[in-house]
Design a protein around this nucleic acid. Structure first.
Lengths: 143, 143
DNA sequence: TTATCTGCAAAATGTTTGCATGCAC
DNA sequence: GTGCATGCAAACATTTTGCAGATAA
């Protein structure tokens, strides 16, 4: 993980971006989180160490990381977007619609399905999104 | 398809909703569309026959149909949501990121994967979302 | 030194809501 | 006649943008 941080900092520098304390703080939160935080979540955690950090800066840092392909964005129109800085490539997600928890299930990929799709449709597939919505065991217990 | 319209009208009535010309117009557009229209798209088409219809009414009708489980909503945080009134249950979508076209590919379902997921995680799976993003053949031609 | 970044506030976007009037039943 | 629906405009929530001052390189 420390490796990844170094690699990210190098990549930022290479692309002409500056390394600021705020960016390091955002990166740290992203790499430490396994729970697919929202921008607001990231902001709150960053503020613990950098009380003056603004939401706009978090948004801007996220935008840079997306451009570099180092951050996966899970879009929701009715809710905050959520982010995965650890596995910044498409992979399945399992989302509890009650507590909003998002986890990465161990699941075989979509390689075969994608190959079939390409030969059937002629599309050039660049990415995908696979999400399962349900109720997690904890929330099932709760009521 | 006429059947579906009748069925929808019956269901609306049964649930205590009123059948207004605006609602019929929105339903008609939804059932006639195969291209997963946005609210704005629906609004434009409805206005041809009902120039006084408001966007709010389209939104409210859509909200009712979602509640009844008769409309599938594809959420996008950066773009208009898109709707499928013909197949209001989860199914795969193939999305051209250049022209924003959305089509329904013929693809085996996720039944096996879902079953595996349930026994692995204990989640109660209620729904899913599977989308492939790429460039359609027409857009590949275009440049 | 200087171009990029920050942080504030304002703008933009898509969707929802409140309310007076209208209309389905 | 009653109560739900409409249509307008205002409100909302999230994200983006503009800009003056601060700062990394």
């Amino acid at each position: 993980m420390q490796d990844r941080m170094e690699r990210l900092l190098d990549k930022l520098r290479e692309q002409g971006h500056r390394i600021t304390p705020q960016r390091i703080a955002v990166l740290r939160v992203l790499l430490e989180s396994r729970d697919h935080p929202s921008v607001e979540d990231i902001f709150e955690k960053v503020k613990v160490n950098f009380p003056t950090t603004s939401l706009a800066t978090v948004y801007k840092t996220i935008s840079v990381l997306k451009e570099l392909g180092e951050l996966l964005e899970l879009e929701f129109s009715n809710d905050h977007n959520r982010y995965d800085g650890n596995k910044p490539y498409p992979h399945p997600h399992l989302i509890c619609t009650r507590c909003k928890k998002i986890v990465d299930p161990e699941l075989g990929g979509l390689t075969d399905i994608t190959r079939e799709l390409v030969s059937d449709t002629g599309y050039k597939i660049l990415s995908h999104r696979l999400e399962f919505y349900g109720i997690c065991p904890e929330c099932q217990e709760r009521r």
